[in-house]
Lab assay of single mutants.
Amino acid sequence: MQAFVKTLTGKTITLEVEPSDTIENVKAKIQDKEGIPPDQQRLIFAGKQLEDGRTLSDYNIQKESTLHLVLR
């Protein structure tokens, strides 16, 4: 499924993900596309910070959801 990641600069990245993907996995995909190390990434969805060990389905993130990427 497709999900979108919006950065603070307003850029939107499109990712191909599965509901079973972990947040860690998603961060690795963002690193592949953008070169941002996962340890600098914080992903926010519905106002919550997403934890590495959880999956997209844990957070009820469905296709075409938009996550927000904040860098630390």
Rank of each mutant, 00 (worst) to 15 (best):
M1D: 03
M1W: 12
M1L: 08
M1A: 03
M1Y: 12
Q2L: 15
A3F: 14
A3N: 03
A3H: 03
A3R: 02
A3W: 05
A3S: 04
F4L: 07
F4A: 04
F4K: 06
F4M: 06
V5D: 02
K6M: 12
K6P: 02
K6V: 15
K6F: 08
K6T: 12
T7Q: 06
T7S: 06
T7K: 04
L8D: 13
L8G: 13
L8P: 15
T9A: 12
G10F: 04
K11F: 09
K11C: 07
T12C: 10
I13Q: 01
I13T: 03
I13K: 00
I13L: 09
I13P: 00
T14Y: 09
T14G: 05
T14F: 10
T14W: 08
T14N: 07
T14V: 14
L15G: 00
E16W: 15
V17P: 01
V17Y: 04
V17I: 07
E18N: 14
E18Y: 15
E18S: 15
P19W: 09
S20Q: 11
S20V: 05
D21M: 12
D21W: 10
D21F: 07
D21E: 09
T22S: 08
I23V: 10
I23G: 02
I23C: 02
E24D: 08
N25L: 13
N25Q: 14
N25P: 00
V26A: 02
V26K: 00
K27V: 02
K27D: 00
K27I: 03
K27Y: 05
K27H: 02
K27F: 03
A28G: 09
K29D: 02
K29Y: 07
I30V: 05
I30H: 00
Q31E: 11
Q31W: 15
Q31S: 11
D32S: 11
K33L: 13
K33V: 13
K33H: 09
K33T: 08
E34F: 11
E34D: 06
G35H: 06
I36T: 08
I36S: 04
I36E: 02
I36W: 14
P37Q: 07
P37H: 12
P37S: 09
P38E: 07
P38V: 15
P38Y: 12
D39T: 10
D39M: 09
Q40N: 10
Q41P: 01
Q41F: 14
R42G: 07
L43T: 00
L43A: 00
L43W: 01
F45G: 02
F45N: 02
G47T: 04
G47R: 04
Q49Y: 14
Q49G: 07
Q49M: 12
L50V: 04
L50W: 02
L50Y: 01
D52A: 07
G53T: 10
G53D: 11
G53A: 10
G53W: 12
R54P: 04
R54A: 08
T55K: 11
T55M: 09
T55G: 02
L56S: 00
L56E: 00
S57L: 11
S57M: 11
S57K: 12
D58T: 04
D58F: 14
Y59D: 01
N60V: 05
I61P: 03
I61M: 05
I61L: 07
Q62R: 11
Q62G: 15
Q62D: 11
K63L: 08
K63S: 15
E64M: 10
E64R: 06
S65W: 06
S65E: 10
S65V: 13
T66R: 06
T66C: 06
T66Y: 08
L67P: 03
L67Y: 03
L67G: 01
H68N: 08
L69K: 00
L69W: 02
L69S: 01
L69I: 07
L69R: 00
V70Y: 14
L71Q: 08
L71F: 08
R72D: 12
R72C: 12
R72W: 13
